[in-house]
């Protein structure tokens, strides 16, 4: 009676686990979360907590009553979806909308495909886009930021986002140069969704993930570079019609998308070749929507569209096989 374990090799493991990956991502999101608290006050906490709680709850309910499978909420992926969804929302959005968004994100975006790893689209973005289309008013009305430890700067209840402001201004015929210089100097503070405003905090989190080898550096760099190059080219050609590239790089959800959503494992290609194509596509679509589309912001649409291409990219971009370089 020895009761040894019999298993196929290998018998040791590298120690990486789904849980560790997920909690690393959550840790990496913390700087941006703290910054959003600073920027929007406790509304940021409210939105994030409701969103996370709703996402985890929906996943648990579905696993318990619909799938009747093993419960996996402890792996932390629902928490990430919750945080990312919250980061895509304005801080004054009503709680019931967040809950509906969470139900769509987890229920339709993730669990209906079979849960973690099987979803073709980024669940948080599915929820976000659903809300954007269903509640266009609430989703595009941003409150004036109320930074902690400082006096409110304006009396206005709502404030524009940087990109929205520029899009509107350009439509009214104001030159891009005026828009930027004038507004930047007057008052620095723009509004936006929770994760849109702290680009530096997001980069810090992203660097943590790159060092931790949870994500690769190529994807965010390619996306940012693509957006940057196209924006720079346009700006050089016509600085009146197009704003400075830095606005595109640091404004809007580019950083959040590039570091946290385009790198989502389940919805991005597997090989490096594929990842480059994928991120080139995201970058190009983002800047096209931003410059010529109806929406001021194009990141979420770009990622969702490229998500749809992932199976195809996976099929085409095979890794270089060993022993293939020699012609047979």
């Amino acid at each position: 009676m020895n009761n040894y374990t019999i298993s196929g090799s290998p018998h040791v493991h590298g120690g990486e686990s789904t849980k560790k990956i997920m909690y690393s991502v959550i840790i990496a999101l913390m700087p941006a979360f703290l910054f959003s608290i600073y920027y929007f006050g406790f509304d940021a906490v409210r939105v994030t907590l409701i969103s996370v709680a709703a996402c985890v709850m929906v996943e648990w309910l579905i696993q318990k009553f619909l799938i009747k499978g093993q419960c996996t909420i402890s792996d932390g992926s629902a928490i990430i979806t919750g945080i990312l969804l919250a980061f895509n929302l304005p801080s004054n959005i009503p709680a019931w909308m967040i809950i509906i968004g969470s139900i769509v994100a987890i229920g339709i975006g993730k669990m209906s495909f079979g849960g973690l790893g099987n979803n073709p689209f980024n669940p948080a973005l599915v929820g976000r886009v659903f809300m954007l289309i269903s509640f266009p008013k609430a989703m595009t009305t941003w409150p004036t930021p109320q930074p902690l430890f400082s006096n409110a700067l304006t009396d206005a209840v709502t404030g524009p986002t940087l990109l929205g402001h520029i899009k509107e201004g350009l439509a009214q015929g104001i030159s891009a140069q005026d828009l930027i210089i004038y507004e930047n100097i007057k008052d620095f503070i723009y509004s936006g969704s929770l994760g849109e405003i702290g680009s530096i905090a997001i980069i810090i989190g992203g660097l943590f993930l790159i060092i931790r080898k949870v994500i690769d550096w190529q994807t965010p760099v390619t996306i940012i570079a693509t957006v940057g190059i196209v924006a720079t080219a346009c700006w050089l050609i016509d600085p009146v019609q197009f704003v400075h590239p830095m606005v595109h790089i640091f404004g809007g959800g580019l950083m959040l998308g590039a570091f946290f959503m385009a790198t989502d494992m389940a919805t991005s290609p597997m090989t490096m070749k594929g990842k480059i194509i994928f991120s080139l596509g995201i970058g190009a679509l983002t800047i096209i929507i931003r410059l010529w589309g109806a929406y001021p912001e194009g990141m979420s649409f770009a990622i969702l569209i490229m998500n749809a291409f992932v199976p195809l990219i996976n099929k085409v971009c095979k890794p270089t096989r060993f022993g293939n370089t020699v012609k047979q």
Binding site: E16, T18, G115, L116, G117, M265, A266, M270, P319
Partner: peptide, 10 residues
């Protein structure tokens, strides 16, 4: 667990 499609194996 579920395959995450992380691509680490590749």
């Amino acid at each position: 667990g579920n395959c995450l499609r992380c691509g680490k194996c590749i």
